[in-house]
Design a protein around this nucleic acid. Structure first.
Lengths: 210, 210
DNA sequence: TTGTGTATAAGTGTATACATTTTTAGAATG
DNA sequence: CATTCTAAAAATGTATACACTTATACACAA
């Protein structure tokens, strides 16, 4: 059980919504849970902090990140900027192989959605869309942003009502990639992300009042 | 001497070009240098990895990041996208106070440039430009990117020939902010960054052959 | 010379122990 | 009842020690 294993296990739990945003993650508790000392737990928490899932402040307990409305607005603005740009770069250079990967990822995302595991499939599909651009750092920033958004969504369990709509968006995006229509694909992606942002913002509002 | 202090001291050294890209940073050596054990050094290296200045791989020594040409191209594409967008958001909401801060930062950058400390002043000026937008995550990504670019520039000591040109760009940007001309300011910033990228790419070429 | 294998050295990862800091719970006060 | 203060409990930061992995250097063979 290396520190990497601990980090991935914790990330899985976090993205499953096992810990509510704002809750604390004491090193000792995690250490006993994983049967190790606190040192590798510290490393794992540092990795999660790097991924943006956890807030770490010296001498204070690590906390699951909690996003304000402004944070959500900003995160989705960044996603719009970065994901649309990357998709526009990817589409013109997509090979037949890339398109097959996208088809496969689409099928997987449909499958995972039925399996109450929407986020996993969603991440897979979007990665497949952007991969042809071969921009590792660009992609990594996008995935960090999606990860933190996903954590909030998982925590409040927003999904069920919207997955069908979003799966339709995915299918549409897939078609536009096959046609090489970057302009329309970017527009579709934009509305896809804007819709997701609205849903998350609405959820945050209701949860705050209720 | 806390782990944060070690991180900032190391960052300072890195951005001064004290360690060439690709060189190793053994925990033990750093520990004895700072008079602490390896534990806080590990933490500091993790922080630097988070800032993108150091590559950390399990069981291997930490290394100063070394960017390929493709990495530089991608990093500056991201900076163009993110910095232009943020400047466009900042200019319409700049207050008189913000403009004064920009003037001050411009003076500082002129001063630091003469003091062989161009990078420091450059960072200050750009931060002042973007601060009015109040987008902490956006700004943080930009600063991470500038940091890694700055490390490469510092390592190869590219600056002296170009600082006058870049200071003129800064003055021009300052004026356009005062006039509230976002379009022209973004165009100016774009060429500013594209110019810097060219210089860095040229330097990498000559260093590789020579 | 160039490459391969191996022993040694160097370096990393983590458990344990303890000092320091933060958090918590309860008592005292208004 | 709410607030402030204080002492105990909990949690963190780091030094030391040791097992394990990686890097280095040297001998040897092609």
């Amino acid at each position: 059980m290396t520190s990497e294993d601990i980090a991935t296990a914790l990330e899985k739990d976090l993205l499953r919504g096992a810990f509510p945003p704002g809750s604390t993650l004491p090193q000792g508790a995690l250490a006993t849970r994983f049967g190790v000392s606190r040192i590798p737990v510290r490393d794992a928490l540092a990795q999660l902090a790097r991924a943006g899932l956890v807030d770490v402040t010296p001498n204070r307990r690590a906390r699951v990140v909690q996003m304000s409305r402004a944070d959500v607005v900003e995160a989705y603005d960044l996603r719009l900027l970065l994901e649309c740009d990357l998709l526009a770069r990817a589409i013109p250079v997509m090979t037949q192989d890339d398109l097959h990967h996208i088809d496969y990822a689409l099928a997987r995302s449909n499958l995972e959605a039925r399996n109450a595991n929407w986020s996993e499939g969603d991440a897979l599909f979007h990665s497949a869309l952007y991969a042809p651009a071969r921009r590792p750092r660009h992609l990594s920033i996008i995935e960090t942003l999606r990860c933190v958004c996903r954590l909030q969504i998982a925590a409040y369990d927003t999904l069920p009502a919207n997955t069908d709509l979003w799966l339709a968006d995915h299918a549409h995006l897939r078609d536009l990639c096959h046609h090489g229509d970057a302009t329309k694909a970017v527009a579709c992606l934009r509305s896809h992300l804007e819709g997701a942002r609205e849903v998350l913002l609405d959820t945050l509002s209701t949860k705050k009042t209720g």
